[in-house]
Amino acid sequence: QEPLTSSMLAAAPPQEQKQLLGERLYPLIHSMHSALAGKITGMLLEIDNSELLHMLESPESLHAKVEEAVAVLQAHQA
């Protein structure tokens, strides 16, 4: 699967841009938190597309954001 680029994203309608990002993010997030992957991906899709693209290229950034999202989710569900 070729990497998602900003030009590929820009060619898609806004709603589809989030879909494209979600499809790339979900497997990565699922490998970290399988049970919460859908909700974590949903939360992260609220972030700017440019930052989401950066996270796809930077495992460290993604990991940090996923941990943040998990903490928020757990606080929300408590």
Partner: peptide, 22 residues
Amino acid sequence: GSSISWPPEFHPGVPWKGLQNI
């Protein structure tokens, strides 16, 4: 049942509707 609906959940292969109401 649970009334917690946030956050919207992403499912691979399913069109994302989480931000439709913006």
